[in-house]
Design a protein around this nucleic acid. Structure first.
Lengths: 340, 340
DNA sequence: CTGAAAGCGCTAACAA
DNA sequence: TTGTTAGCGCTTTCAG
């Protein structure tokens, strides 16, 4: 309600003086400072940040665009990002694109019109034009989790390949030799890296890669179920199953249970992500922990550095992951004999 | 980059004309309209919404303040709210207060300075001063899930009491007589209503309320574990357990499993919320489904109505809930005989 | 049917 | 040490 002008009038000073006491941007005598403060208090002055932003060309607002907030992977990322932003006086505008690249672009353009200082994308479609466009536009942005194909811009991801290698090695050490894989959405660079990591893990452990054990999935529960159903039909079923994310692992688990096969006695199961539920479940899921909060936090911090012109040491970072062994992995059942 | 002025110059018209063709706010001859459009295209004009907002006193931005995005209850609410907002051309600024009333207030004040058009609170602390303050301030807001103590303002909640009654009745119909309860945070109006519903459910089914079966909790996993541990120690353990939310139900389940008691063979388990995980688990949790997406959607829609002066039929709505019977409830084990 | 100009609330040259 | 003033980009009254 009250503006700098009102305060200036009430305090009997110029609006410049008021502005300067608010921002501490030049010396104002204690005398006047006091008068201004008093007037602000009396009038219950609150700055209009919109007007300030119009002047300063800085909104202290970031766009946070996610493919689907409802995917258990993202809330922790958002929380980390919001925390890092808050620490530095920024806010996040949340957009849920519903996995639609079109909405992603539309939202980006709206956010740009709202003059956000920077943008964060979780799981940007990998063929997206956005990175190139934003680069031209000059707006800083950071891609989380999925590395954009066009190489410029900031990136914070995780060591998907390493995590998957660890998962396979764990299984191999337990004695598993027939290990199936349920892949994620192939358009995602993260999913590709996980698939690559699986193959590499097999190789490092001297295990053959058998193609009938490689299933496609889309990161969703149902695709985990389907893959498991298919795998169970095989003449020679796998003794272990690794999914490219926890959600599909749970889908597979449901199917397994329904078919009467026990986890981990009959088949071992490993996920990837370590979503909250994986440790909440009555039987904990063995999985690869991804530092999602960290990812959001680092991403936002980097982005703000870029906005404020702080030099950035590493514009592209890959956070380490960690295998968490819980209750869904065990040694395979004894072989019945040498012949088959 | 390009402003209305640039466009006006390029098109050889006044800035008023440009503004009017942009907004369709008064008649402009086809001739000039065409020239303006061409100029906008040529200069790649994009409106600066900040400047517009400064003039119109409307930002088309809402504050969405949540206690903890990471709590599986909220993402769906946020998604619903974001969707309803997007439908009407609004955006959400996301704030995670980390359950802290102080941060909640601080964030509110910052959002107000950013001139948001309205505010949404999920699980506002029930003793909060905010409702009264916002009322004075004249900023529309809606409380989700928890009904604020000060009665004004919009509210969208769910039928907590009815849901709990349904849960208890389900158990009673299966033949359970010793039913334990794990309550939620007593500062939450929703938790209170759930506790009340439990008692009422007992009463309606002619069951006595036994105080040693009533446990306190705080909606978190650990408190579910603790409650279950306590319950298991009882001389006469319950045959069924209902938790005020799913997360605590999972905590209890973990403890039960660890103690070797089977669900539902040895004890039945019912949660409340129907978070995504409850249907993901290999053994599905019987629970009360809350329409969280709906809650967010309705809330945002109502808030926008209030902002835009659309008359509101029902400023306070309570959405219906539904018992979802999955795999964690069954008849109690046979009694060994009449004499205990 | 179109244009000139004021002003939203603020910051920051420039003057004094 | 403080004040005057232009102007951020836009909408909208008021004239014509």
């Amino acid at each position: 309600m009250a503006s700098v002008k009102d305060v200036a009038d009430a305090a009997g000073v110029s609006i410049a003086t008021v502005s300067h006491v608010i921002n501490g941007t030049r010396y104002v005598s204690p005398h006047l400072t006091e008068r201004v403060r008093a007037a602000m208090a009396r009038l219950q002055y609150t700055p209009n940040l919109l007007a300030r932003s119009l002047r300063t060309q800085r909104t202290h607002t970031l766009g946070f665009i996610t493919a689907d907030v409802t995917n258990p992977f993202y809330p922790a990322v958002a929380k980390g990002a919001a925390a890092a932003a808050a620490e530095r006086g920024y806010n996040l505008i949340l957009v849920d694109s519903g996995e639609s690249p079109a909405i992603e672009e539309e939202a980006t353009s709206l956010l740009l019109q709202k003059q956000v200082d920077g943008l964060m994308y979780t799981s940007m479609a990998s063929e997206s034009e956005l990175p190139a466009w934003l680069h031209d536009e000059g707006t800083p942005f950071v891609a989380l989790n999925r590395r954009p194909s066009a190489g410029n811009g900031l990136y914070v991801g995780i060591d998907n390949e390493g995590g998957m290698i660890a998962a396979v090695s764990h299984l191999a050490e337990l004695g598993h030799e027939r290990i199936a894989f349920i892949a994620g959405n192939p358009l995602s660079s993260a999913a590709q890296a996980r698939t690559a990591g699986f193959s590499e893990g097999l190789r490092r452990n001297g295990l053959p890669m058998v193609s009938e054990l490689m299933c496609e999935g889309d990161y969703r529960l149902e695709s985990g179920r389907k893959a498991a159903a298919y795998l169970l039909e095989l003449r020679k079923a796998p003794t272990a199953l690794v999914a490219a994310n926890d959600v599909m692992a749970f889908g597979a688990w449901q199917q397994l249970r329904q078919a009467g096969v026990r986890v981990p006695e009959d088949v071992s199961l490993v996920g990837f992500d370590d979503i909250a539920f994986s440790s909440m479940a009555p039987v904990g899921l063995t999985t690869v922990h991804c530092p999602m909060y960290e990812m959001g936090h680092r991403g936002a911090a980097m982005l703000i550095d870029a906005i404020e012109g702080v030099p950035i040491q590493e514009p592209s970072v890959e956070l380490p992951v960690e295998l968490i062994v819980r209750d869904t992995t065990a040694r395979p059942r004894e072989h019945t004999g040498p012949s088959e």
